[in-house]
Amino acid sequence: MDPSQLLVTLAGAVAIAVVVWFFWLKQAAGVRAVLGSSGFQEATILVKGAYSPDTIVAERGKPIRLTFLRDESTPCSETVSFDALGRTARLPEGKRVAVELAPTEPGTYGFACQMGMYHGKLVVE
């Protein structure tokens, strides 16, 4: 193996490590849902290329209202579904859609678009 091959191999190994760390291991900083006057813990999520923010942190025991706004026309993100909580919502472009949830158990509840391209997490503490 000549030096250039060694260099490329090492660089490849580092690149793979970066991919694994960046996409799978790195923990996201969540956004905490804010308790509103309605009694709901509320957060708004922009749908544009991804869910922004993609991690919402909420407290157990109080209902949660996540308001989605889809600001793109790609049909991929037209719906959002919370599989574990059995909720699905259509997100028409440009309209705010509130999804109300009341998970009883603490844990991490994933949500995703119908095609599984966009992913997000609702963390109930």
């Binding site: 956004v31 905490r32 708004t44 942190v57 309209k95 705010r96």
Partner: peptide, 16 residues
């Protein structure tokens, strides 16, 4: 999860 923020995300104005 340690790093959490309470910032509201700024959204573009909703247009039908």
């Amino acid at each position: 999860m340690s790093a959490t923020a309470t910032a509201e995300v700024r959204l573009p104005a909703a247009t039908p």
